[in-house]
């Protein structure tokens, strides 16, 4: 699918709140370098913030891998959030607006899906969670 990697991959540990902050900063840098518009940058950084916090809060910590990629002449930023946490037993439920297992708004996962171009979720109860997202420059 992806033809070339233009920058990265850069891996960042998400083990504390500081990791979430750094994830946002790194994603902002990638998005700017990829020349995403301000609206697209903001959407992408916000999605990254949600997924990084899920990795920390629900997944018990993990990592984010960022890369600038090229596919059929277009550039994009690809992020992979991975943790070895409890996984998600009911994916449909987790992707439902307003559903949260804790005291959250339950919008992080479904909302970030709406904020990006490509979204894929790979998880199973007891096997950790991996979420990959991509935003393409227009």
């Amino acid at each position: 699918m992806v033809n070339a990697t233009l920058r990265g991959p850069e891996v960042l540990g998400i083990r504390a709140v500081a990791g979430v902050v750094r994830a946002r900063q790194l994603v902002r840098a990638f998005a700017q370098e990829c020349r995403l518009s301000l609206v697209e940058q903001t959407k992408f950084v916000t999605a990254a913030s949600e997924l990084a916090r899920n990795t920390l809060v629900h997944g018990g910590g993990g990592s984010m891998t960022a890369a600038m990629v090229e596919e059929r002449g277009r550039r994009g930023v690809q992020l992979v959030f991975a943790d070895q946490g409890p996984g998600i037993a009911d994916v449909d439920l987790a992707l439902t607006d307003g559903w949260s297992s804790g005291g959250g708004m339950g919008l992080g996962l479904p909302g970030s899906r709406r904020l990006v171009d490509d979204f894929s979720l790979d998880t199973a109860a007891g096997h950790g969670t991996t979420v990959s997202i991509t935003k393409w420059a227009r």
């Binding site: 903001t42 959407k43 919008l107 709406r114 904020l115």
Partner: peptide, 13 residues
Amino acid sequence: RPQIAQTIVALGI
């Protein structure tokens, strides 16, 4: 700001 408004709407807040 406009970019924040659009993001909030897409998130569903």
